[in-house]
């Protein structure tokens, strides 16, 4: 093989396959003046570099140089090939080089962790907030009906509250449930809580469920109404739908990310995310409740006192029985919220 002084030639050992048979030919290859020479045994080929394609580097794996007619060279002598490629001015795609540079891998890893954190912290909640008002009412009703069905089947039993008391609470709530003169659509249901104990929930379509145990714990109507205004806050601000959208998006991402290993595992984080409303949502619902209470000339203390009673009721050896839907797990940081409701913020304005 000829060499020219301006173009130092490196000879590289390779296997040549003609693309028509599986026969391997041992050859050496070199480059002179932009032309690749392949020689060895019965093989002698010259091909301009422009007509060739070099496969991306993949660590120790063989690199392939392909000809347009389907033939290819398989090279495992990486050091010699690197010298040859450098001499021809070949440069691998940046994306592929990154994968094998420790510094870039560290940068990519940090970028990944940062973007996942940003997405969970700000991206998903924002997207859920924006899209929640667009969820059709039909979907919310269907979702709520299914949830109620599940609750009735699995956890709650029919109420034992006298109809007169139910009616009184319904009328009282209707008179409270309006914001800026606009009534808030809602339905109030009573259930015996069973293992849920004293509890109240809001379903996305405005169905509020309050347990007999909570009514008993409150003693009077006013504290029950205070809790229900808080639940109305969750409905009004579509917290349920937002949590569901966030949860589904997380599940989708996790399934895609863990798809290789097991889609079963993907459900665990979703369950964690869906365990309850976020702290911000609880604050929003509390603010809303305080607004409604004040409109009727009542004190936020009603809600704070009720929260205290509920925390105590669930704390008395019942915590372990309260289950995944219990007040404490779905309403975190109760102590912090009680303090906030009693703080200056709420007393002054």
């Amino acid at each position: 093989m000829s060499t020219s002084p301006s173009d130092p030639v490196t000879e590289v050992a390779a296997l040549y396959f003609d693309g028509r048979s599986a026969r391997a030919h041992t050859v050496t290859l070199g480059v002179t003046d932009g032309v690749l020479h392949v020689a060895g045994g019965e093989i002698a080929r010259r091909e301009p570099l422009a007509a060739l394609r070099v496969s991306e580097p993949m660590g120790d794996a063989a690199r392939l140089i392909s000809f347009a007619d389907g033939a290819h060279l398989e090279v495992r002598d990486h050091a010699a090939l690197a010298r040859l490629l450098a001499a021809t001015g070949h440069r691998d795609a940046a994306v592929v080089r990154w994968a094998f540079e420790p510094r870039m891998v560290v940068i990519m890893l940090s970028a990944l962790l940062l973007s996942v954190w940003l997405m969970m912290q700000y991206g998903l909640p924002w997207a859920a907030r924006v899209s929640a008002p667009r969820v059709p009412d039909g979907a919310m009703t269907a979702l709520s009906e299914r949830t109620l069905e599940w609750l009735d089947q699995a956890l709650t039993r029919p109420t034992t509250l006298p109809p007169a008391r139910q009616q009184a609470l319904r009328e009282a709530l209707s008179s409270v449930a309006s914001v800026d003169g606009q009534p808030i659509a809602h339905t109030l249901l009573f259930r015996s809580g069973g293992q849920l104990g004293a509890n109240a929930f809001a379903l996305p379509d405005g169905t509020l469920i309050v347990t007999d145990e909570l009514v008993a714990l409150a003693g009077a109507d006013a504290p029950v109404l205070a809790v229900l205004t808080h639940e109305l806050g969750h409905v009004q601000q579509r917290h349920g739908v937002r949590m569901l959208l966030q949860g589904s998006a997380t599940a989708l991402l996790m399934t895609w990310y863990l798809g290789d290993i097991s889609s079963l595992l993907a459900t665990a984080p979703t369950a964690l995310v869906q365990a309850g409303y976020s702290r911000d949502m609880e604050r929003e619902a509390d603010d809303f409740a305080v607004k409604l209470l004040r409109a009727r000339g009542q004190s936020p203390e009603l809600l704070a006192g009720m929260l205290e009673k509920l925390a105590a009721a669930h704390g008395e050896g019942q915590a372990s029985r309260s289950g995944p839907m219990g007040w404490l797990s779905s309403h975190p940081d109760t102590a912090e919220r009680i303090a906030r409701l009693r703080s200056e913020d709420f007393i002054i304005h």
């Binding site: 993949m58 660590g59 120790d60 794996a61 994306v95 990154w98 994968a99 094998f100 540079e101 870039m104 891998v105 990519m108 890893l109 970028a111 990944l112 973007s115 990310y257």
Partner: peptide, 29 residues
């Protein structure tokens, strides 16, 4: 099979980040 975890990790993480940044389009590449 001569693949190594440390080596493949680089390919995997670059793939993952670029797929996220391109909203999934890069996933084919």
């Amino acid at each position: 099979f001569s693949g190594r975890g440390t080596e493949y990790f680089g390919i995997w993480i670059v793939n993952l980040v670029l797929t996220l940044l391109t909203l999934g389009i890069y996933s084919a590449w």
